[in-house]
Amino acid sequence: MKIKPSTKEIYTDTGKFIKRLHCPIHVKWKAMKKNGNESRICFECNKTIHDTAKLNDTDIVKLIKKDPQACLRVKLNQDNVKIVH
C-alpha cells in the first residue's frame, strides 16, 4: 500500500487509488473499544475501524469494494506502507 501524507490518499502498490482517509470525529485509536486484534469500534459513531497493518492490498481493496465507507487505520511506520509524494 502507498500513502500520500499530504492528502491522506491511499493506493495499492501498483498505484490504483483506494480511498482518501478522513474522519471528522478525530477519535484516537487508543480511545476506541477493542474488537479482536485487527479492528476497533469507535464509541462516537459505532463503526468498525480496520487496522491495515496486517492486511495486504487485495484485502483492503476487497474491504473497500464491499463497503466504500469502511474506516481504516494506517500508521506511517507500519511495514506494509510506502510513502509517496
Binding site: P5, K19, L21
Partner: peptide, 10 residues
Amino acid sequence: GSYAIGDIIG
C-alpha cells in the same frame, strides 16, 4: 489534531 498525521484514521 484535526489533520495531524502519523496514525491516520478514516
